[in-house]
Amino acid sequence: KTRWTREEDEKLKKLVEQNGTDDWKVIANYLPNRTDVQCQHRWQKVL
């Protein structure tokens, strides 16, 4: 388990703006080493 970088956080924010929060698998495709569940959790709990 690796810490999220600032770059990953920024990328996640942009991806959510573009794609919404309905399909985390699509978002995870753009973030290597991150699963859809990790992306969703990061968005809901941290950002």
Rank of each mutant, 00 (worst) to 15 (best):
P32N: 06
R6Y: 11
Q18V: 11
R6H: 13
N29G: 14
Q38P: 00
D36G: 09
Q44N: 14
K45N: 14
V16I: 04
D9I: 07
D23F: 03
D9N: 05
I27T: 04
L15P: 00
L15R: 05
L15W: 04
G20A: 06
L15S: 10
D22Y: 04
E8R: 00
R6A: 13
L47F: 09
D22N: 15
T35P: 05
V26H: 13
E17W: 09
Y30D: 13
D9T: 07
A28S: 14
D23W: 01
L15Y: 08
K25N: 12
K1G: 08
K11D: 05
Q40F: 05
Q38D: 15
E10N: 15
E17L: 13
E7D: 09
E7K: 12
V26K: 11
W4A: 01
R42G: 02
N19P: 02
K13N: 03
Q38C: 14
L31R: 00
W24M: 02
T2V: 07
C39M: 02
C39A: 08
D23I: 03
W24S: 01
D23V: 06
E10Q: 14
D9F: 01
V46M: 10
K11Y: 13
Q18R: 09
T35N: 04
V46I: 10
P32F: 07
T21H: 06
L47Q: 03
R6W: 07
D36Q: 13
A28L: 01
E17Y: 05
V16N: 00
R3Q: 08
R34M: 11
K11H: 08
C39L: 03
T5R: 05
Q44V: 12
V16R: 02
V16D: 00
K1N: 12
W43R: 02
Q44H: 07
D23L: 04
E10P: 00
I27W: 01
V26G: 11
A28K: 03
T2G: 06
Y30E: 10
D9Y: 01
E10R: 10
D22H: 15
D23E: 07
E10G: 08
T21W: 04
N29Y: 15
T5Y: 04
N29P: 04
R6T: 14
C39T: 03
V46L: 12
V46W: 11
E17N: 14
N29R: 13
E8K: 01
T35S: 03
E10L: 13
A28F: 00
V37H: 15
K13P: 01
Q40V: 05
D23N: 14
T5G: 04
T2P: 09
Q38R: 01
R6P: 13
Q18E: 07
R42I: 02
Q44W: 07
R3F: 15
H41T: 13
C39I: 05
Q18L: 07
N19T: 09
W24E: 00
H41Y: 14
N29Q: 11
K11P: 00
T21D: 12
N19F: 08
E17P: 05
V46C: 08
D36Y: 07
K25Y: 07
T5A: 08
L47G: 15
H41K: 14
D22G: 12
E8D: 11
N33D: 09
R6F: 13
E10F: 14
V26A: 12
D9Q: 03
C39R: 00
C39N: 00
W24P: 01
I27S: 01
C39S: 03
N19H: 06
I27C: 03
Q44I: 10
D9A: 01
N29M: 05
V37E: 09
D23Q: 11
R42L: 02
G20E: 10
Y30Q: 15
L47E: 06
T5P: 01
D9P: 00
R34S: 05
D36F: 09
L47V: 12
N29W: 08
K45H: 13
V37Y: 14
T2M: 15
L15E: 05
H41G: 10
W4Y: 02
V46T: 08
R3L: 15
V26C: 12
L47W: 11
I27D: 01
L15T: 11
Q38E: 13
T5V: 03
L31F: 15
K25D: 07
T21M: 13
K14F: 07
K11W: 06
P32S: 10
K14N: 14
W4N: 00
K45S: 11
K14S: 12
Q38Y: 01
W24V: 00
R42Q: 12
W43C: 07
G20N: 05
R34Y: 15
A28R: 03
E7M: 10
Q18W: 08
D36R: 05
E7N: 09
K14D: 13
Y30I: 07
D9C: 00
H41Q: 14
V37T: 12
K14P: 01
V46Q: 13
E17A: 14
A28I: 02
T21Q: 12
K14H: 15
A28C: 08
D36L: 06
L47K: 04
T21E: 06
D36V: 09
N29E: 11
V46F: 15
G20C: 03
I27G: 01
L31G: 00
V26N: 13
H41A: 14
G20Y: 02
E7P: 05
V37I: 12
A28P: 01
W43N: 04
N19A: 10
A28N: 03
R6S: 15
V26S: 14
W4Q: 00
R42M: 02
E17I: 13
W4L: 00
K11V: 06
T2E: 08
V37C: 05
E17S: 05
W43F: 09
W24N: 01
P32A: 10
K14L: 09
T2L: 06
K25W: 06
R3G: 08
W43A: 14
D22T: 13
G20S: 10
C39V: 05
K25F: 08
E7F: 08
E8S: 02
K13Q: 02
C39Y: 01
R6D: 09
T21F: 04
R34F: 07
W4E: 02
N19K: 08
P32Y: 05
Q40P: 00
L15G: 06
K25P: 10
C39H: 00
Q18K: 08
N29K: 11
I27A: 02
L15I: 13
W43M: 06
D9S: 04
E8L: 04
V26Y: 13
Q38W: 03
L31C: 02
E10T: 06
